[in-house]
């Protein structure tokens, strides 16, 4: 039953992801943290950090990790957790697979199509808002325990926005800073 729920949740996440991994984070967060409460906001933050630092698309990484963690927290053995990972990852890719195959068949009809272009234009501000929400929801008392957290946030924000620092380097620097500051 939990596998069915995992599957349907991640299928919906895959189906409504427009605009890549960061937009997907907002969907995952809403479904997994807010709706189903499978994991806490802090655990989600950690999973995002790990997904960023490991190879592969962030959506695949977080689906794999969350699928595992959800089953693990129910007290099942590693094999069932593996099945959870497999379920979540398959479900998140399946909608793309179906839609892209469908597009492949209609390739020339799809190019410069007015319906598609209008939909993409309309989606743009929504996607930007979604990514912003993914960041805002992670501003929790557990993630920002004191002024030092805010300092780290401000420093990495400025480094990334104005000095084009590599996010992975920033995450590693954040980890080192955490080790020294607390």
């Amino acid at each position: 039953m939990i596998y069915f729920e995992l599957f349907s949740t991640f299928f919906i996440i895959g189906l409504f992801t427009f605009g890549g991994g960061y937009a997907m984070l907002s969907l995952i967060q809403n479904e997994v943290v807010v709706d189903h409460q499978w994991i806490s906001a802090t655990e989600f933050t950690d999973i995002v950090a790990i997904s960023q630092m490991t190879p592969g698309p962030i959506g695949i990484n977080s689906a794999t990790h969350i699928g595992y963690t959800v089953i693990e927290q129910m007290g099942y053995s590693p094999f069932y957790c593996f099945l959870g990972s497999l379920t979540a990852t398959t479900a998140v890719v399946l909608p793309s697979f179906l839609v892209v195959l469908w597009i492949c068949v209609l390739f020339h009809k799809f190019k410069n199509n007015i319906w598609v272009n209008n939909a993409l234009q309309w989606l743009k501000p929504i996607i930007i808002g979604m990514i912003g929400a993914a960041a805002v929801i992670l501003v929790t008392p557990e993630n920002f325990i004191d002024w030092k957290s805010w300092l780290l946030f401000a420093a990495s924000f400025i480094a990334c926005l104005f000095f084009k620092a590599n996010p992975i380097h920033l995450l590693i620097a954040g980890g080192l800073a955490g080790l020294l500051l607390w």
């Binding site: 933050t45 950690d46 960041a135 992670l138 325990i145 990495s156 995450l171 800073a177």
Partner: peptide, 18 residues
Amino acid sequence: RIFQGIRPVVVAVILVPM
């Protein structure tokens, strides 16, 4: 402690692409 330092950076790293 390491993750305590990483978490605020995650928020910044999501905000900047937006």
